[in-house]
Design a binder for these strands. Sequence first.
RNA 1: GGACUCGUAGCUCAGUUGGCUAGAGCGUUGCAUUGACAUUGCAAAGGUCACAGGUUCAAGUCCUGUCGGGUCCACCA
Length: 811
Amino acid sequence: MDKTFQPSKFEKDIYAFWEKNKLFVAKVDKKKKPFTIILPPPNANAALHWGHAMYVYEDVMIRYHKLMGFETLWFPGADHAGIETQFVFEKHLKKQGKSRFDFERPILFQMIWDFVQENRGTMEKQLKSLGFALDWTKEKYTMDPDIVDIVYDTFEKLFKDGLIYRAERLVNYCTSCGTSFSDLEVVHKEQTDPLYYMKYGPFTLATVRPETKFGDTAVAVNPKDKRYKKWIGKIVEVEGLIGKFKLKVVGDDVVDPKFGTGVVKVTPAHDFNDYEIAKRHDVPLKQVIGFDGRLNNLTGKYEGLTVKQAREKVVADLEKKGLMVKIKTDYSHRVATCYRCGRTLEPLPKDQWYIKVKPLVDEAKKLVVKNKVEIYPKRFKKQLTRILDEFIDWNISRQIVWGIRIPAWRCVRPEKVKIMGFHDSVVSQVIKGKTKTYRLRDHGFKVGDRIALENSQKKELFGYAVIMKIQKTSVGSIDLQDKSHYAVYSTYEDLIKAFKRHNPEKEINKQTKAFLYEYTFEEITKSRSGCGRWIVSKKKPQKCPKCSSGKLIQDEDTFDTWFSSAQWPFVTLQSTGKDHFDYFYPTTVMETGYDILRAWVSRMIMVGYFVTKKEPFQNVFLHGMVRDKHGQKMSKSKGNVLDPMDMVQKFGADAFRAALLFGVKEGNDISFSEERIVGMRNFANKVWNVGRFLHMNKNEEKKSKSKKIKATDDLNKELEQMKKQYQKHMDKYEFSKALNLVHEFLWHRLADVYVEKLKDELKNGNMEALSTLTNSYIENLKMLHPFMPFITEALYQTFYGQNKSILNRHA
RNA sequence: GGACUCGUAGCUCAGUUGGCUAGAGCGUUGCAUUGACAUUGCAAAGGUCACAGGUUCAAGUCCUGUCGGGUCCACCA
């Protein structure tokens, strides 16, 4: 034995030994209790970082339970990490002077696939170098066909249960990354921008985004604001940069009379608040910024300018025209930015798939409240229930290529047409051929327009029509008995009731204006192709089940990566086989960082329960973030980043692992420094040398006489107590305390006290002293093994032989 | 604005349901040591446990407030 412990001499061989002897391979064994952890799948093509280093907690739990006689499964996998990976790949393309728009979709997908495959493997190697007891024979990847298949099943099931819907809403869109994000992926940044006060018809109003004024469709004031009360409901004329336009003034409580001038321009297509105001007051949407981040053809001479350029030009032009009142330059506010590229996000209206989360959240919350899913440390339970309470419908569409493509097919319409919606209850009457309809809202139809008729509840097209005549009229002057209308009414109350059904928020009386459309109706038949319907199906359907059209095109979008991640605990086990799923599911512990409690943990519970009707894991253990030695976040700009793999090389995996846990309260952030590892490296060396000392004595084999003395009894007693204490800590997830206990006992009791006391006895060849010390030592190695697997295995083997493993003791 | 969390030795942190002279690692000081280990041993210095009240026989630990960090969420043109 060397004088000091040399990690590099052992680590590789020992890991290979473990793998060769299938020590990490889990089998279904009904005689044993299962203990399962699914590894939070790291990004397939990224190198190991501090987050992954924290998997040490999982290894500690796995090895501890393996030693306790459980059938343990630690299930490894890799995530395709949609946006992250595509973003990295695009940077890679950029270096070659190319962009993703230079390639067709299948080619681009294949290129990213190959790129990932090339870079894959480093992550696995690094996890092995940390000694993780992962069952590599079962490894899965989120893009494996069998995984994707189950993810599709989930989507279908959600759809069948009515929990998936498609809606046009404002989304957070990054015009640089070319995709939308869910609300959780938005990062708000504090920023100082000019606040522009401009003349706006009879008002002056303040805005930071003058370039969106072309999309304004209303002006809002607070209804209690005496200054503007009289304007509410009136139409005002505004002199703009591309001509005069008219807008309605609405009263809404969200307007703060104290801010700016107390007047707000309403731009529903480009602002979340305005969108809400517009919904409340039935104000139309007008999109003037495109998904390329440039102004569109509704903005006259500003068309084609980027948002930034347009803002500068609009400001300059407003000043020229004398419409700019003043500019406040130090206005500080929070801006939504892309968590990926850091650019400002553009709220844009877009058609996307959403998951209705309410029913899922309700079930998830029950599991958490009733402790079917227990959270450690406890304080995160409160946080999780709050997160569940606040969940809003989840946008799962992403406009990127790298991901699991959404299995939805659109029955393509032969041409782009405007749509007129009908309430489900009147569709049958419309089909009977009555050809007139009253509408409260003007759809902007013109005589001669070819329009599609849609069942607004089912979102299905059922016919086409050509507009013959449009008449504007008040409700009071509608001919109730008009036989050519699809429905006749006996009283105005009935008619108003019918209107109300379509416009529940609107006040309707005899003075309300309605539009009367006359049209020729044409029912959609099998011969006509394309009804615009969405079909959710794993495989491409032969034809549309509604209209029999064969022209079906798959949605271009891919799933939010979290959608597949949310299913990870059960897809991994299901794809491994029913017997495995039945035995190992629900998994025992989900261990991850508290930073993804919302994005991942909550969703796993929601989706996992929905699909399996069981909690995906019985316990959640959350670890903290790694910071530098002064508690500062590690960042490249601060230059305080340590590379975990460097640390492993320099001090050994055991020291590194122990340093992550030693003296750290579970769930708290860790201030990491090289000194911490040095301390643990020294500890490892102490352990090594106690072994070395005992081993030397063992080999000296003097005259064997045994004599019980007080010190050996004391040691045995102390050891028994300590073992109990250790188990208590381990079972309560108090790993730091357990490690501290072994550290204290091995070093300061066993080595400093007992070895010193018994040194003379050993010299005299007292075998009782040697065996007591050795026994105590081996027991400690066992307890230390979850934390420092390599050195403990190496020492165990020097005592019992190269073909033995410390892990097999209870096998 | 809301929620959570922290404020204990020079630094980074432990301190279990309140209970003896408040602990660890690193750092500091002194001494020791050539047959397990200098990646060592022994010893020492160093804390009004943020502050102010309160509950209690007893508070670093529970309650209230103040001050000061941190994290997350919400969000006004």
